[in-house]
Design a protein around this nucleic acid. Structure first.
Length: 565
RNA sequence: AGGGGUAUAGCCAAGCGGUAAGGCAACGGGUUUUGAUCCCGUCAUGCGUAGGUUCAAAUCCUGCUACCCCUACCA
């Protein structure tokens, strides 16, 4: 689809609004977006949705998009998070316009606007404690009560606010509040807090400030300073929109941005709550923010997901205002779709079973030149070596074939007395099974048919095709099999049970004795492959000169596994 | 004295008064030296529910119901 065609029709309700605005010359026809993360954790798949929406919308309508760190709470934020967020956005393939913005760099302007509000009689310094203020606020069914400090004079408020800024009060001693309506049905309008005292140094502004604006007082005005036209956020901020607008109307701001809300992304069998993700990291349930089991951008990246697949996934799920839980299968479909056409094939035996080719001389090597991709010749070829001693997958052999009632249940692998094709090489027949004292199969004695290189055998038919490696001409590797982190589809949603109680004990299975074809030698971290018949894999950064470490991104679709169930 | 939202297939989602797109999943079939990919086909007389308006309603109106969000000096 050409860029022009993709612009033919709006893809979601936000785009409809923007197209109407452009049509009607609202905001002078400009489209200025922004992605405003708080640097208090790593970005996850839900943020990817917001990133694609904001940056993608700017691209689509030839507008611009800022990156702004919404850093008004120094107690929970850090430079580490800032760095990770920058890296994740770049990796996803987006570039913000101009410098990185920080809400904290608007603190002077915000402070002066707070004084403006006070001067207009729209804000006051309140000495109520947080707890008392909560009581005064009332409830959903009770009106609030005016603070006893609500009618302080402008002069007194100005003086008190300056003293707050100068550090004359302890944390919690007082706060600046907007004077709106303690009877408002919308709780956000019951004289919301604007500034609190926090004797905490800030990762960007150091010790310059001991009062910090909160989200509501900072966000819309920051949007306005940057000339943001369409300020997108998630549904839970919908009730804040009247407040957002109230500040824009009551302050001499340079532009009038509009807030629009869309629904958060929820994915089943995982969590997308920064607080809970942080708990998994802090409690060492996972190895870090980039653990491949986490739905963080860095975790998905380490798992083997591509940026393109994440962007495609975001296109697939759309943008609406209805709450839903997207099936993890959609994410998997997105990565399979990408990797199938872009990634070279290789063979890896994850749980090896020894096979001896009795009619092949020891010490002889035969090399096969196999295509890197079955449909894309431009990807070239790879060399795979065959010797007398082979390794095949344990689950690719049975002594006696299981009965098959239909073609889906047919055994298409090796069996005693049967033949099977070694992928890209010869057809072999299993003549004898060797077991140890416990009865476990430890070796297969087979013969290969020299006439079957590149052509079908005469007089008999192999069951199917299996993958293999030579024992000598292969590399040792550790394969890490990942599965869903939780056993429940909605670990977050059950109020009775804690999400920590439904962790999947098999979310990581380590296979230490896998072998992979020699072509993977020295492959750098993040190199991706399809291991034929097995799945998509990715070299992990834990690899070293002696041993590759390989993460399974996702299995291949497996109709055999389905037929068995 | 409550306020704000959302309901279209198992999941996501188009639709904007003219007779239910698409994707994921599932299920059949074809191709295949990957049980993959690819290709073909099936999958809502129905749009939370009950009424109403209309020649015509998922779309407009009214009443119900279910679910989500809101009473942080977090964002």
């Amino acid at each position: 689809m050409s860029k022009n065609e993709s612009n033919q029709k709006p893809t979601n309700f936000i785009h409809q609004i923007i197209e109407d605005d452009i049509q009607n010359n609202v905001h002078g026809g400009d489209v200025v977006m922004r992605f405003p993360p708080e640097p208090n954790g790593y970005l996850h798949i839900g943020h990817a949705k917001a990133i694609c929406l904001n940056f993608g919308t700017a691209e689509k309508y030839k507008g611009i998009c800022h990156l702004r760190f919404d850093d008004t709470n120094p107690e929970k934020e850090s430079q580490e998070y800032i760095d990770s967020i920058i890296s994740d956005i770049n990796w996803l393939g987006y570039q913000w316009t101009g410098e990185i913005r920080y809400t904290s760099s608007y603190f002077d302007q915000l402070y002066s606007w707070a004084k403006h509000l006070i001067s207009e009689g729209h804000a006051y310094v309140c000495d109520l404690s947080a707890e008392t203020a909560r009581e005064y606020r009332g409830g959903f069914n009770q009106p609030g009560t005016d603070s006893p400090f609500r009618n302080r004079s402008v002069e007194e408020n100005l003086s008190l606010f300056e003293r707050m800024k100068n550090g004359e009060f302890k944390e919690g001693a007082c706060s600046l509040r907007a004077k709106i309506d303690m009877n408002a049905a919308n709780m956000n309008l019951r004289d919301p807090m604007l500034y609190r005292i926090l004797h905490t140094s800030h990762h960007q502004t150091g010790d310059k400030w001991c009062i910090y604006p909160n989200y509501d007082f900072a966000h819309g005005q920051s949007d306005s300073i940057e000339g943001v036209t369409h300020s997108l956020c998630t549904l839970e901020f919908e009730d804040h929109r009247p407040l957002y607008d109230w500040f824009i109307e009551n302050l001499p701001v340079p532009s009038k941005p509009k807030q629009y809300e869309f629904s958060r992304l929820e994915l089943n069998y995982t969590i997308t709550s920064k607080r809970k993700l942080k708990q998994l990291v802090d409690d060492q349930v996972v190895t870090g923010w980039n653990d491949p089991r986490l739905p963080t951008i860095s975790g998905l990246r380490r798992r083997g997901y591509t940026a393109a697949s994440l962007r495609h996934f975001c296109d697939m799920i759309g943008v609406t205002r209805s709450n839903g839980i997207v099936d993890m299968g959609m994410l998997e479909a997105a990565i399979r779709d990408d990797l199938d056409s872009t990634v070279p094939r290789a063979m890896c035996v994850t749980r090896p079973l020894k096979v001896t080719l009795t009619n092949m001389e020891a010490g002889v090597e035969e090399w096969f030149e196999l295509p890197a991709h079955p449909k894309d010749e431009s990807m070239g070829t790879r060399r795979v070596g065959l010797t007398r001693n082979l390794l095949i997958e344990q689950e690719d052999f049975v002594e006696v074939k299981p009965p098959a009632k239909n073609k889906h249940e047919k055994w298409k692998r090796l069996a005693l007395g049967d033949a099977v094709r070694l992928r890209g090489a010869y057809v072999i027949t299993c003549n004898e099974v060797i077991k140890d004292a416990t009865g476990e199969i430890i070796e297969l004695l087979c013969t290969y048919d020299p006439a079957t290189k590149g052509s079908n055998p005469e007089g008999y038919k192999p069951n199917g095709v299996i993958h293999w490696v030579s024992e000598e001409l292969s590399l040792p590797c550790e394969v890490r099999l990942y599965d869903r982190l939780f056993t429940e589809a909605n670990p977050d949603g059950d109020k009775e049970r804690n999400f920590m109680d439904c962790l999947n004990p098999d979310s990581l299975v380590v296979l230490p004795d896998a072998r992979v074809e020699v072509g993977l030698k020295d492959a750098p971290a993040e190199t991706r492959y399809q291991f034929e018949r097995t799945g998509y894999f990715c070299i992990d950064k834990d690899s070293n000169a002696d041993k590759l470490v390989i993460n399974r991104t996702v299995t291949l679709r497996d109709s055999w596994a389905k037929a068995k169930n």
